[in-house]
Amino acid sequence: MSSAAVLVLTASFLASAVEAVEALTIVLAVGITNGWKTALLGVAAGSLVLLALVVGIGPGLVQFIPLSSLRILIGVLLLIFGLQWMRKAIRRAAGLQSLHDEEAIFARNVAALGTDPNKNDIEWSGFVVAFKGVFLEGLEVAFIVLTFGADGRESFLPALYGALLAFLVVTVVGIAVHRPLAKVPENGMKFVVGIMLVAFGTFWGGEGIGVEWTLGDYMIPVLIAVYAAAAVVALAIVKQTSASRAALAGKAGA
């Protein structure tokens, strides 16, 4: 397996694990409140619609859009998506935005759904919540796998394997612990994945517009290192700025 394929697999695994943990939290809340029949039916329906979408759109992308145009499209999407993840992770790490709290989300969902006294019946409101949870979180994963796969290189299978492995690991751990996976370092994973998506977005987008990278595929790890360094510096600046603002506000209040 090439170094680029390993990087794609890692990025896909981490991104999918983050989304799978979020979907698991919602499904667990539905299962516990409305019964497992409702939750699993929602999971099955959400997965089927997602699969149909991926199978329907995926091959068409490669067949009908020229590769250079596709690379530009992939590049733009990966850049936007990756930069969003990086920004969110930096703001969360700096304390400007609350961390993703699976326990709180779980409690909120349980309270909203209420306990169904007859858990053997299908509760349609719970079904919709489980369906949406799986479909929407899965859509982000499908987006990442499709964009990696649509590059037309040997990237689709590593991306797909990474996503499948993540879902397998999260599902097995979720079944074993039977509660939200609150200890997963979601923000750290988002930070790493964001950096990797931006690096791939730069590389493929650049190739799409005609940039010939001097280092070839080895430019990907270089870009990862550059963006990681930039993210660390950005985090330090954001932390320092927010601390200065807090100190100023404290002085003004005193």
Partner: peptide
């Protein structure tokens, strides 16, 4: 320029 502008964009968004 590509990576430099991308880093700048991230900084601006923050």
């Amino acid at each position: 320029a590509l990576p430099a502008i991308i880093v700048g964009t991230l900084g601006l968004s923050l």
